[in-house]
């Protein structure tokens, strides 16, 4: 089981991207995507923004659960108050674990946003942020 996680800004621009594998059931936390699947992942996540834009008006919560699917791949979404989307591509349903993961990432993102040198839609290159997201992934997924 491999995951592709992307934070997408307000102009469909990727703010942060990461790949990781599962750490449950003896997984080593390394993503196993073939090279051609990498571009497909981005295509799928990008195209699911269409659905997110529709579902966001009908869902009262920020976590929209699973919004879209492509063949056997699912896309879950979390929409922040500032219209930043957290999108996670996964292949098995795990609503609760993903919710916890998203809320942790939301914490981290909000802290990044408080940085006076960071502006909305800017790419997040901080190694600390990256490390903490990976930790959250290891913890929940």
């Amino acid at each position: 089981m491999s995951f592709y996680f992307a934070i997408v800004g307000t102009k469909d621009n990727p703010v942060y991207e990461a790949e990781f594998g599962t750490s449950k059931q003896g997984g080593d936390g390394v993503a196993r995507f073939r090279e051609e699947q990498r571009s497909m992942n981005q295509f799928i996540v990008h195209s699911s923004l269409d659905i997110v834009e529709e579902v966001q008006w009908a869902t009262p919560t920020m976590y929209m659960k699973c919004v879209d699917r492509f063949n056997n791949l699912l896309v879950s979404c979390f929409l922040t108050a500032g219209n930043i989307k957290f999108l996670l591509l996964h292949d098995q349903k795990a609503d609760d674990a993903i919710r916890q993961f998203f809320s942790d990432v939301y914490d981290l993102y909000t802290k990044t946003l408080m940085n006076p040198f960071y502006e909305v839609d800017m790419r997040i290159t901080s190694g600390v942020f990256d490390g903490k997201v990976k930790q959250a992934a290891k913890k929940y997924l």
Binding site: D12, F43, I44, H46, S47, L49, D50, E53, E54, W57
Partner: peptide, 15 residues
């Protein structure tokens, strides 16, 4: 905002 249009999906399948 053309909410609910499927322009991104259409583009992906076009690709």
């Amino acid at each position: 905002g053309a909410w609910g249009a499927r322009k991104r999906k259409a583009a992906m399948w076009g690709m």
